[in-house]
Design a protein around this nucleic acid. Structure first.
Lengths: 219, 219
DNA sequence: GTCTATACGGTGATAGAC
DNA sequence: GTCTATCACCGTATAGAC
């Protein structure tokens, strides 16, 4: 644990602006959320307690409640944090891929298997949340919208690509197959004992793209 | 299969034979497990308590503990129950499909979208357990083996089919794509607000099979 | 803003009557 | 085998000191 601990009791007689306080508060929140993720990964969502998060983050329980009203809210914010990270990742990769639909498509695929997004730890957390979506409409909302946004981007690529080079399948099914395979491989990575690695997974999906669309090289 | 086997010379001291007692006990266990599934679906794995299961099953908490030592064991048995149901379903469908690899493959696909296996409720439970696999080696073992068995059957079909008719992709990737798409569609069914129905999902996967293998008709 | 101490309720598990 | 009564513990959340 890196102890970037702040000296307590430091009298800041007006030196610190309200802005930097806010920044610090945000940082504290992130710190807590990171700890939450670690705890869920280690003991499962069903065993997550404020005590564990407090111990892991090095922040007292009372203070933890101060930042996040209660346990439910902490979990909700954790999901939201995870989602934002995911969203920013694929959207920036998508934007960076330029206008070529094939490059866009491959970028979307690759980002789903990038180390930041696709660690076993992170996947495990996603599954834990997905497992509770039915009973938590808020989770469902976040997950559903996130999922749909990615689906749409992928569908858009497939559509453009289809118009460019044709393809053996209708656009919608192609997109469904590609996205499905990605999700399925995530599951494999989570459950199978290291049978698939990230890089292998990505190239396997690339091969599927090559099979669905008539391209000279599918990478 | 279910024999009328009777042990000779058994002391039947009047009312209930030991056999029917055992049967009744098994039935009680099933009853409790069903209730557990319902409760997990309703409130999430993290909120599952013995009280809730007791209320739902109509069996007192004490008696519940009598049957399943503790909460952890109840969950474990629930997962095992779910897994057995799944295993029996696809294996019998596989066996019933005869020798034709294409028919076998389609049977495997269809069974994954059959009402018994693929209800939102059941999927939700699977995800909840998957989300805890990392911290529970026993869950991991059950899920992993189950997953691998299905994968192998599917790979076998693809291999045979590939030898029969050829195909645009190598066997392994084809199998990975098909299974991945199935898993991905499960996720869609769970998360998307009724965007995909079971039947649509199955035919979409059929179309993928048609695209991966040169068949006159893919359904 | 941060931390300590504590109240309160709920949860898993036991003992023992029927 | 089944149930009731009960306990000890732990987790959440609050109140208030620094």
């Amino acid at each position: 644990m890196d102890s970037t601990k702040q000296l307590p009791g430091r009298k800041q007689t007006g030196d610190i602006s309200s802005r930097s306080r806010r920044v610090q508060s945000e940082q504290r929140k992130r710190q807590i959320i990171e700890a939450t993720i670690t705890c869920i990964d280690r003991n499962g969502l069903s065993q997550l307690t404020l005590d564990k998060v407090a111990a892991e983050s090095g922040i007292t329980k009372g203070n933890l409640v101060f930042h996040f009203r209660n346990r439910e809210n902490l979990l909700e914010q954790t999901l939201q944090h995870l989602n934002e990270e995911y969203l920013e990742s694929w959207q920036s990769a998508f934007a960076a891929a330029g206008d070529d639909p094939l490059r866009q498509l491959l970028a979307l695929i690759d980002v789903r298997f990038s180390p930041t997004i696709c660690s076993r730890k992170k996947i495990s957390i996603w599954y834990a949340f997905w497992g509770e979506t039915r009973s938590r409409p808020k989770y469902m909302k976040v997950c559903g919208e996130s999922d749909q946004a990615f689906s749409n981007a992928l569908l858009q690529c497939c559509h453009a690509l289809h118009q460019q080079v044709g393809g053996s399948l209708d656009t919608k099914t192609s997109a469904l197959a590609i996205e499905g395979m990605i999700d399925g491989l995530w599951q494999d990575i989570l459950i199978s004992p290291q049978r698939h690695k990230r890089a292998d997974a990505a190239t396997a999906v690339h091969r599927l793209v090559g099979a669905l669309f008539p391209l000279e090289r599918a990478d």
